[in-house]
Design a binder for these strands. Structure first.
Lengths: 177, 177
DNA sequence: GGCCATTTGTTTAAAGTTCAAGGAGGGGCC
DNA sequence: GGCCCCTCCTTGAACTTTAAACAAATGGCC
């Protein structure tokens, strides 16, 4: 992510061809993206750490569980929904379990399997803290964008997200690592 | 970030008023945003860890230093540019120093101050790895968006980024913590 | 000069994440 | 059945980040 000083002559006999550097305009876009994403992540992490006592990712796990049938999901499926590794999920669920917000349950069909189940306490924490979190997201994002921009953002991020999880076998996806 | 089951009656005498939940459309936008941001972060972190032996944030620090006059920046200024806390930066610089990619230097004007200086080795690492990183960013983002979308993305993220770093005193910004 | 609040940067410990390795079960194939 | 490979999930160590506390230097004010 650096601009080259002078562009070397093209068509040389060098093995390593000149990379397609980002244009100035692309660089600006990229920097705003990184800044916005970094600050937003920090902001929401802090908001939730303060108000719910957990990082944003953990909160997201509780939300996924709350939305699932019977408020439970297999570990791998939850990892897939949250876009994280199974290892990270294992540690996270261990912590949430210690808080009493999630409990594990064996899967009857597959003895290797585990369900993460949202407890009533976990559900209650969500009820208590969801409004504040929604407010934070609104203030930081939706209240600042007009409907057109909101639509664009969704579309753009969908393209990026889908591009990063190809359906082919052998793809390096977090939950398969 | 949860949908309420039924919307309670408005204008009640309750203290806690009903939060403005996200509409279905807003929820979709938000989820694509989080998915895309999470996957992109993971993807670039992994690419750089593999090819440059450091996380994305650390790489970004080297880039900022490379762009600075005399390839050096005061710690706080670097933290500000990278949108991270000074504590985090201290640890990061310590690690990069161990790698020989950055060195610290005392500030002559202010005896509390420290400069982080990019070493020649650090600069070389950047030269070696920048093309691969640019490729990764291109493949994940720019090659998938038309010019209109790129422009929108920059504008939208600029709005979000600026909204999260108000100029007022007392703002909770990472580098002031 | 002396005092005090603020700024600068680091340090320690706790919390979270990544990485590599591994135990255990499933499922195909002979 | 027995074998082999794959999937599911966990574990422990190394690394990174956060949170809180701190020392030293600055700058304003008297």
């Amino acid at each position: 992510m650096k601009a080259p000083a002078p562009a070397p002559t093209e068509g040389s006999t060098e093995k390593a061809r000149e990379p397609r550097w980002l244009t100035d305009e692309e660089q600006r876009v990229w920097r705003w993206f990184m800044e916005g994403a970094t600050l937003l992540d920090d902001h929401l992490d802090r908001q939730l750490q303060r108000d719910a006592g957990m990082p944003h990712v953990y909160y997201g796990l509780l939300v996924k569980l709350a939305e699932a049938p019977r408020r439970r999901l297999r570990m791998t499926e939850l990892a897939m929904l949250a876009k994280i590794t199974r290892s990270r999920l294992s540690h996270a669920i261990a912590r949430l379990e210690k808080n009493g917000w999630v409990r594990r349950e064996d899967c009857p069909d597959d003895k290797r399997g585990q369900f993460a189940v949202l407890t009533e306490e976990g559900h209650e924490v969500l009820r208590q803290t969801a409004p504040g979190h929604v407010d934070a997201v609104r203030q930081a994002v939706f209240d600042r964008l007009d409907p057109e921009q909101q639509k664009s953002l969704g579309e753009i991020m969908r393209i990026i997200a889908e591009g990063l999880q190809p359906t082919e076998a052998g793809a390096d996806l977090p939950w398969l690592r």
